[in-house]
Write a protein that binds this DNA or RNA. Structure first.
Length: 291
DNA sequence: CCTTGTGTTCTCCG
DNA sequence: CCGGAGAACACAAG
């Protein structure tokens, strides 16, 4: 489940690998993944270069010319794997694997590969997506601006501050976790990091947003910022499908404080982590120290 | 049955 | 009755 730290890791890695390199060919193995119209999609991409890679929330934005952008959303099981010529020849097993976290995906394409972008340096970019929720879309600059305008600030940005959150939460009955998951309000947090941020701040996820005190809001701002920064530093969390652009797992899993820890002891107070359903999502928290 | 990100649709309330 | 908030559903595959 790639969230902001995972998508940022991919953005950063790919920026160092594919910028300025021409697209030689595009194979669309699943038309659904590009929303139909593969002829125009391929024609627009082939011959152009990746000029810049941006990100808003969990959405990757590849600039291919001043008015055309390729958007890639990984949703639940999407992967974007870069293989250079040597790795393709060796079948993806060329990385030695210094530690356990360096697990390699194996031969590509595989049964989850939906799109292959071949580059002029003989490298390939594979879009894999087992559950086909993710997508690639071409948009012009006007459409891109409209999409960007639909996102709230990210925890790492200065706009995500105490004043912002005070105004956002004021007189809202919705539970705080649902609000944090709403990309229109706050961009980038998904199920894992929403649970983690609330744990760090000591706030129950089912609290009505409007019931948070100023002190709690301050803690939430600080917790979310530190959490996202640390998760990016560790290259994100791999629970099942997430891989970085080189096919490696993220390093943050072992640093999670609550997510996936149902029935285990709280690292902070020794209470037992419980799991409930909230906003349609599995939600983990410590009933003892989260108030 | 469970898992989840997001777009769409539906319902409710003021 | 309108508008918006927010909940519920759809999607998909293992």
């Amino acid at each position: 489940m790639p969230e902001l730290p995972e998508v940022e890791t991919i953005r950063c890695d790919l920026s160092a690998q594919i910028l300025g390199i021409r697209i030689r060919a595009v194979q669309v193995l699943a038309v659904k993944s590009i929303g139909g119209g593969s002829k125009k999609f391929i024609a627009t991409l082939v011959g152009s270069k990746f000029q810049q890679i941006d990100r808003i929330g969990k959405l990757l934005i590849f600039k291919i010319n001043p008015k055309s952008y390729l958007l890639i959303h990984l949703k639940m099981t999407g992967q974007l794997i870069y293989r250079d010529q040597r790795q393709i020849i060796l079948g993806g097993h060329s990385e030695p694997g210094k530690g356990e976290k360096r697990r390699i995906i194996g031969d590509l394409p595989n049964k989850s590969t939906r799109v292959i972008i071949s580059l002029a340096n003989n490298a390939k970019l594979y879009f894999n997506d087992q559950r086909r929720f993710g997508y690639l879309r071409l948009v012009d600059s006007l459409a891109l601006e409209k999409i960007k305008a639909g996102f709230g600030p990210e925890p790492g940005q200065s706009a995500f501050n105490e004043n912002f959150l005070v105004n956002l939460l004021a007189s809202r009955s919705r539970n705080i976790k649902a609000l944090l998951l709403d990309q229109k309000q706050v961009a980038g947090l998904g199920n894992i990091y929403a649970d983690e941020a609330l744990f760090l701040a000591g706030i129950r996820p089912d609290r009505p947003a409007g019931s948070l005190s100023l002190a709690e809001i301050k803690r939430l701002v600080k917790s979310a910022k530190e959490l996202i920064k640390l998760a990016i530093k560790h290259r994100g969390t791999t629970f099942s499908d997430y891989r970085d652009a080189s096919g490696r797992q993220g390093g943050f899993l072992t640093r999670l404080q609550v997510y996936g820890r149902r029935g285990q002891k709280c690292y902070r107070c020794g209470g037992i982590i419980t799991k409930i359903k909230l906003a349609g999502r599995g939600t983990h928290f410590c009933p003892r120290c989260q108030k």
